[in-house]
Lab assay of single mutants.
Amino acid sequence: AVSDRLIGRKGVVMEAISPQNSALVKVDGETWRATSGTVLDVGEEVSVKAIEGVKLVVEKLE
């Protein structure tokens, strides 16, 4: 799938994300809905860990 190429890519949080709420991230110039197990604020850099349906699963870039 096209989205599989995004695993391992870096992105930027466009809307705050919490474990209860998905929000938008920008990866390679494209906007995607994403979820995370932690709270992520706007502007934080993230890494794509997986794809669940049409959502990216991201975590904060260390």
Score class of each variant (00 low, 15 high):
30 E>K: 10
3 S>E: 07
47 S>V: 15
31 T>A: 07
29 G>N: 08
4 D>F: 08
62 E>M: 12
53 G>T: 03
8 G>M: 04
3 S>W: 11
5 R>G: 07
22 S>Y: 14
27 V>K: 01
61 L>A: 08
30 E>Y: 10
43 G>F: 04
45 E>G: 06
15 E>F: 09
60 K>L: 07
14 M>W: 06
1 A>N: 11
59 E>Q: 08
52 E>A: 09
31 T>S: 09
1 A>I: 11
11 G>Y: 03
14 M>V: 14
46 V>D: 00
18 S>N: 09
40 L>C: 05
59 E>T: 08
30 E>L: 09
3 S>Q: 09
61 L>M: 09
57 V>H: 06
31 T>G: 03
17 I>S: 15
7 I>T: 04
29 G>V: 01
11 G>F: 03
36 S>R: 00
19 P>V: 09
22 S>N: 10
59 E>C: 08
36 S>T: 05
7 I>E: 00
4 D>A: 13
16 A>T: 11
56 L>D: 00
62 E>A: 12
20 Q>S: 12
44 E>K: 04
54 V>H: 14
59 E>F: 05
37 G>H: 13
30 E>G: 06
6 L>P: 00
16 A>I: 15
51 I>G: 01
57 V>M: 05
28 D>I: 03
26 K>P: 02
30 E>N: 07
4 D>Q: 13
28 D>C: 14
52 E>T: 08
2 V>E: 08
11 G>R: 00
4 D>T: 13
43 G>C: 14
36 S>G: 05
30 E>F: 11
54 V>C: 15
52 E>L: 11
6 L>T: 02
19 P>H: 11
1 A>D: 10
5 R>Q: 07
57 V>S: 04
51 I>S: 02
52 E>D: 13
18 S>Y: 10
55 K>C: 15
52 E>R: 10
14 M>F: 06
36 S>E: 05
36 S>L: 05
32 W>I: 00
62 E>N: 12
37 G>Q: 13
62 E>W: 12
32 W>Q: 00
62 E>L: 12
20 Q>R: 10
35 T>F: 09
8 G>W: 00
21 N>W: 10
46 V>S: 01
